[in-house]
């Protein structure tokens, strides 16, 4: 059955491309018709951002090695770097009552089912079907999607469930006295194995205690720009246990980088 679907999907791919063509063309037009001063301004902004991020990254590199060293001391496995693939969104609307999007990278690029998809701001969703030329991604806001998260401030773990609205996630499993505040950042907890740990998912938006119910009514606002980003990152993360790094191997590694 999957083979039949892959075959047919190659046939219908041109239709999907055709549908998303107008949107792409208008975007292309806006890109081409941008004024010189605007371009210059954007360039300055980007350069500033780049500087800012590279300085931040410098610090992170040191921290990462420190983390690896500490984990080695604890005889714990460390996370390998994740591999990413940039995929572009096709502007098609599959069904109105589900949050599915189509991206233009499929199993020909090695994209597989259950792979997490991110954008520059946070987690977008996961691949639910990979076809030869394209793949279907379920957004985290789909009513049948759930993502294991933890509060970045204190490590409180819970599950965020899609609400069917693009700007809202539900956190239905937290008790009334949970230590969670509006503005708390929720990051992926890495439980469940689908999403790698530590990527931002949402910010807690509102908290209302219902005295007559065991669980509080909490909602969160997704960090990723689900309805705006056109470039998405498909991530390969190693969820299989990584071989242990022994303490004697570490110093060489660190020296090599310095």
């Amino acid at each position: 059955m999957d083979k039949a679907r892959s075959l047919l999907s190659v046939l219908v791919y041109p239709i999907q491309l055709l549908v998303s063509l107008p949107v792409e063309l208008t975007e292309e037009l806006f890109d081409t018709a941008i004024s010189y001063s605007q371009l210059k301004e954007e360039n300055v902004n980007l350069r500033r951002k780049q500087l800012f991020f590279s300085i931040k990254l410098l610090k992170y590199e040191a921290l990462e090695y420190e983390n690896i060293r500490l984990r080695a001391l604890l005889e714990n496995s460390f996370k390998l770097g994740e591999q990413v693939l940039v995929a572009e969104l096709l502007s098609v609307n599959l069904v109105p009552y589900e949050h599915l999007v189509v991206v233009n990278k499929g199993s020909r690029f090695g994209v597989g089912v259950k792979q997490p998809v991110l954008d520059a701001n946070g987690v977008v969703g996961q691949v639910i079907r990979s076809l030869p030329l394209s793949s279907e991604v379920m957004l985290i806001t789909d009513p049948s999607h759930a993502i294991p998260v933890q509060v970045n401030r204190n490590g409180l773990r819970t599950i965020a469930i899609g609400s069917g609205q693009l700007d809202r996630l539900k956190l239905p499993f937290l008790p009334n006295n949970a230590d969670i505040l509006p503005g708390d950042l929720l990051v992926t907890s890495g439980l469940g194995g689908t999403f790698p740990q530590g990527y931002p998912v949402a910010v807690v938006g509102g908290f209302s205690v219902q005295p007559n119910k065991p669980f509080a009514d909490i909602y969160a606002i997704p960090q990723a720009k689900l309805d705006q980003s056109r470039e998405l990152l498909i991530v390969w993360s190693d969820s299989t246990p990584v071989p242990l790094i022994f303490p004697e191997e570490i110093p060489e590694d660190v020296n090599a980088s310095e």
Partner: peptide, 20 residues
Amino acid sequence: LIFAMVLKIMPLPDYLSRLN
């Protein structure tokens, strides 16, 4: 028929796509 398929998966604002 292809044109109809295009109309079916056309990207629309959420409230319009529910009426498509």
